[in-house]
Structures are given as C-alpha cells and as structure tokens.
Nucleic acid binder design. Structure first.
Length: 581
RNA sequence: GCGCCCGUAGCUCAGCUGGAUAGAGCAGCGGACUUCUAAUCCGCAGGUCGCAGGUUCGAAUCCUGCCGGGCGCACCA
C-alpha cells in the first residue's frame, strides 16, 4: 500500500463532502507528502491551499474544516492546521506498525505498484556500436537503462528492453577492413603498424583466427569488393558476441535486438520519408553554416531536409547525405516508427552525453511520425571519471591503458558497478574510484547498504540460535506483537520501510532509478543507528535474551528491513548479500 | 553565435516535479566497544542554494536577464 495515495483518496472524499466545487476542480493538484520536518506529523497536504478558491473559502478556513473531518477518520491520530493552510496528519502508531504485515506478507514483492496498469513501454539502451568491446562509459548507460527497466516493471509497466544495433554505415566497413588486416596477419603476413583510420585494438585477433579456421585463405587475394560483405557479416557477429558477453557480465539481457541494416533493407526508410513528404514535412533547402564555429569544409548546397523546426527543433535536419544515401537520422526515424507500430507509444532512449544535441530532432520525428500520439523521453548519461585510489585513470587507446567495461566488472564485481553507477542523477558527472568502491566503510554506499541487509540476516540467524522454539518465517513473524515496538527509532524505521511503494512510484514517474539508491541508504542509516543504540542501552537490542516476545516483534522489524532492502536492490539489479566477513 | 545540461557546506552530492527552520557522506573537532559483526554509531561546527529581477499565500525548484563551467552544433554513428 502506498500510504500517501491511500490518504490522498480519503482527503479527496472529504473535500468533496465539504465543497463539491472544490472536489470537482483541483483534485490532481492535491499533494500528500511526508513533511520534511517529522515534527509536523506523518503526512502533509496542501489541499486546502490549492482548493480554497474553488471552495470559496479562505485557505485556513477550508483547512480547519478538512482537519475536523479527517480527525474522525480511523488510523488518524491527530490533525493540525499549520502555516498558510497546511493540514498535517499524524497517524496512529498502530497503523504504521501494521505496515509490517503488508511487508511480511508480500515479501520482496512489497512495493510493486499497479501504477503502470500493464501499459507497454520500450526502453532502448546501450546500443553501443558493434566495432569493439564496451568501455566503462557504456556501463553507465547500460546500468541506467536496465535499472530503469527494472523500476518500471516494479511500477506495473509492461517493459521491453531493446538494443539497437548500428550495423550499417561506414564504421562497419572500417571494421571489416580492420578484420581483413588481422586476417592476413593470422595467415602469416607481417602487417606492421595498423594504418590510420583502421581499428588498432587487438580484440580483432581472435576473430581473425576464427575466420582462418572457418574459411582458410579464401578471402586473402580477392578484391575488397569481393570480401567486404562476407567479412562485414562475420565481424558484426563476432563483435555482437563480444558485447553480449560484456552485458551478461553486468547481468544485462535485452529482450530484443533490432538491426539498422534490417530496417534499411526492409524499405522502411523510404516508406517513412514518403509519409513525411505527404504531410509536407520534407523539402529540399539550403542550411546556413553554424555561426561562431569555424567550418573550413562547409559547402553550401541543397539538401533533403525534415521540417523538425515545426516541432520545436532549432534547425531542419538532413535526411540524405551528399552521396544521396540516407542519413543515420533517417534510419532512426524509421526505427522509432517501427517501435510505434509494435505498439509502443511510450519510449525511452538512453544515450551518452555527446548525443544531447540529437534529442530535439528525434522527439520531433516521433511526434511527426505518430501524429503526436507517441512520446519519447531521452535519458542522457553524463561522463564517468574513472579513478583508482584517488588518482585519475588516464585512458588512451594508443598508450594501451584503455579500460574496458569487462576490466572494471572483473575487478570490483557487477553488483558494485551497478549500484555505484546509480548513486548520482544521470545528468551529473560521476566519479568512479575502483579502490574506494570495494572498501568496507561508511563512505562506500554499496557496502553500507549491503551491510545493512547482511546485518539483518545475521540478527535473524542469532535470534534463531538463541530461541530454538521461536518461529521466524514471515507468516509467523506477522503474528508478532508489534505493539511492543515503541522506541521512536523503531517507529521511524517502520515509517521509512512503509515509504517503499511511494519511492517506487515517484522514481518510476520521474524515470530516475537513482532515487532507490538514496532511499536504501536512508534505511541503512536508520537501521545501523538503531543497532548502535543497542550498544548503549541493552534494552534496545534486537535480541533480548529473556524476552522472547519482544525479540519476536523486533525480529519482524528486522526481517521487514531485510525484505525492503532486498526488494530495492533487486529492482536495481543488485543481488543482496546475506553475510559479510 | 545558437541549443541543451550543470552551478546547493572546504570537497563529493541529495533535495521526493512549488511547501514550513535547505539535508547526507567525506574532511575537521569531541565522544561511544569484555558487540545481537565498532566493517558501526552519537554530538559539534560548517550555507547570501552563482548574481539580479519577476510570478504567488509560499521559490534551491517555475519565468526573464546576466556571470561561470561542461557538451553539442550540415553530410559520421
């Protein structure tokens, strides 16, 4: 149960009783939130201030009426009117304690929401070019997309995880030529320095050997035109296998891989552009060179343009290259229309920071192609600055200090990578210190949260050892006498745990999975803090040797903490640990 | 020149889509262990939310204009 939504519904009913006009008017603007200052109660609503005009009352007067009505509701202990017309509600502690039932009975499914109503939503993420292994920067987009997918699933959406393979264009030819060189090397030739313009990485050496094994020297002395298509296919398959491995190391598995080449081959691009032409959204025109930027090779010439300015873009965008072939943008339009046709009217793309300038045109295209019915949200991932023990890791392909995603995952573990990548908002740059993230200390958020879960499991193990007769399965725990959980710290922890459904919904709505990481840190802090109180006052320990009933009640709280932390971690794609030694 | 993002404590960052006295970690200072794992916790100190206007009951949050930083800016993907 989302406690806040629950009482929001009750408040709406009461408002309608007080004033039908107000009830009909601004219901959507009513917010019910936890007040920042806990001394203001458990819930705070702005309803009286937002609806005073429609009700024909002064905010404070409406607030007083609302407060009187709410005071008679079950589960509500006190209601106060404060400031300009806030209505602050304090709930009965028994109501909060009963949230433990909700948690224990649902297990890790606690927090699952019906907000999404099973609506289809498509998340396209990673989409790294198949020209080599993934590097650290890719990891952030991969984790963000995957965690967002997990979050939206938890929030009740029908999520499809999708990867767009950019397997067309000149880069793939470059890949194929680079492979051919390595292939000749594998056949015994001395190739020397890799020429400028080809990919120098030695990750093409194993595929080259594999190609020799499969085809012998059959491609060796042919003209490029004869071997290029075959080597292209071979190279793409090899590179995608590499990327799949890297993703699997992060625990990421897309449901669908869409190929740019297949889109192009299907004629979808011609089709979608023809459709845009029909709507008068395509024309031939001349673009102005950008001002304030030196463009030596600028050549003013007529181009086939998409009227993206009609949908808020800054300039119209080219659909054709100078050689007459389609631009990447054109095939991306066709691709997104394909997604729309597959029934997705809500789409999310996760891109790197260098693609920021591409957002408007893509959103314009989605609006145009769908007739305004589909929406595209683009989540941009800022840079990851890699450190090792406080020293920046300089990455250079030439110097051979290039750090791949795989290197980092192998070094610190996939759960650490996943969690740390979500400890910042996606638009903020992120520092990733490979030494620090495996430290067992307070300033390592992964450890701090994992330790809370492990500590909770440890308490339950100890409780079982001390009281062999105590039933500690979830259903027995939900029969415990919660009334004995009366310490303010315990109640505060319960309230935090009860906030999980709301965190899921607000984070899902904002498309911001990093909020889960912060929320889990809060729980961990409250839990560790409560633990420490037991070192000062033995009566506050979770396990009380001569009081099995109290231990049972506290075990229920501890178990509920473990459940919520585990649920949060799993939503982020991180595996909770039961022990840390 | 234009567009987007960012600017919050000494440092790294949250701030729940406009709520009340702006929060946390680190660093600093002072405390707490014959432990249910101190791998932790408690306290103190630290702020003109870049600057200036505006919108309103109310602004770190929205609008405008500056200042500073980042990214991008036909045909690559």
């Amino acid at each position: 149960m989302n406690v806040f939504n629950h009482f929001r519904d009750i408040i709406k009913v009461e408002i309608e009783t007080i004033s039908a006009a107000a009830g009909a008017d601004g219901a959507p603007r009513i917010s019910v939130e936890p007040p920042r200052d806990p001394s203001h109660g458990d819930l705070s609503t702005n309803a009286a201030m937002v609806l005073s005009r429609a009700a024909g009352l002064k905010p404070r007067d409406l607030a007083e009426k609302l407060a009187a009505a709410l005071g008679a509701q079950p589960d509500i202990q006190t209601v106060d009117v404060a400031g300009p017309g806030f209505v602050n509600i304090t709930l009965d502690p028994a109501f909060w304690r009963s949230r433990l039932d909700d948690i224990l009975q649902n297990g890790e499914a606690y927090g699952t929401s019906t907000m999404g109503g099973g609506r289809k939503i498509n998340i396209e993420y990673v989409s790294a070019n198949p020209t080599g292994p993934m590097h650290v920067g890719h990891a952030r987009g991969a984790v963000l997309g995957d965690a967002l997918a997990g979050l939206l699933t938890k929030a009740g959406f029908d999520v499809t995880r999708e990867y767009y393979i950019n397997d067309a264009g000149a880069q793939i030819d470059t890949l194929a030529r680079s492979l051919h060189l390595r292939y000749r090397e594998a056949l015994g030739e001395t190739i020397g320095e890799i020429p400028e313009g080809l990919y120098p990485g030695d990750y093409l050496v194993p595929p080259a050997a594999k190609l020799v094994e499969r085809d012998g020297d059959k491609w060796r002395n042919l003209d490029e035109a004869e071997w290029l298509p075959a080597l292209r296919d071979f190279a793409i398959d090899e590179m995608m296998a590499l990327i799949w491995d890297d993703l699997a190391a992060l625990g990421i598995h897309h449901a669908l891989f869409s190929s740019e080449r297949e889109i192009a081959a299907s004629g979808a691009i011609d089709e979608v552009v023809a459709g845009l032409e029909k709507d008068d959204l395509v024309y031939v025109g001349v673009l102005e060179p950008p001002k304030g930027k030196t463009m030596d090779d600028w050549e003013s010439r007529p181009q086939t343009l998409f009227r993206s300015t009609k949908f808020g873009d800054d300039v119209d965008r080219p659909l054709k290259k100078s050689d007459g072939s389609w631009t990447y943008f054109a095939s991306d339009i066709a691709y997104h229309r394909d997604k729309i046709r597959r029934g997705f009217d809500v789409m999310i793309d996760v891109w790197g920071a260098d693609h920021k300038g591409y957002i408007k045109r893509m959103q314009a295209a989605v609006t145009a192609v769908s007739g305004g019915k589909a929406t595209l949200d683009v989540r941009i991932c800022n840079l990851v600055h890699l450190f090792d023990g406080g020293a920046p890791v300089k990455m250079s392909k030439r110097a051979g200090t290039f750090v791949t995603l795989r290197d980092v995952v192998d070094k610190v573990g996939r759960d650490v990578v996943r969690f740390i990548m979500l400890t910042r908002g996606n638009e903020a740059a992120l520092e990733f210190d490979m030494a620090k993230v495996v430290e067992q200390s307070r300033d390592n958020p992964v450890f701090y949260v994992q330790y809370a879960h492990a500590r909770a499991c440890s308490v339950l193990r100890n409780a079982a050892a001390m009281f062999p007769d105590l039933k500690l399965d979830d259903s027995s725990l939900s029969d415990a006498d919660y009334g004995r959980l009366s310490d303010p710290g315990e109640l505060a922890l319960i309230k935090l745990l009860a906030g999980w459904p709301r965190v899921v919904e607000t984070a899902a709505e904002a498309h911001e999975p990093h909020r889960i990481a912060y929320y889990l840190s809060e729980i961990a802090a409250q839990f560790h803090g409560q633990w420490a109180k037991g070192n000062i006052d033995e009566n506050l320990r979770y396990i009380i040797a001569d009081d099995m009933g109290l231990t049972h009640a506290r075990a229920a709280l501890v178990r509920a903490t473990a459940i919520v932390v585990a649920s949060g971690l799993r939503t982020m794609g991180v595996k909770p640990v039961e022990e840390m030694r």
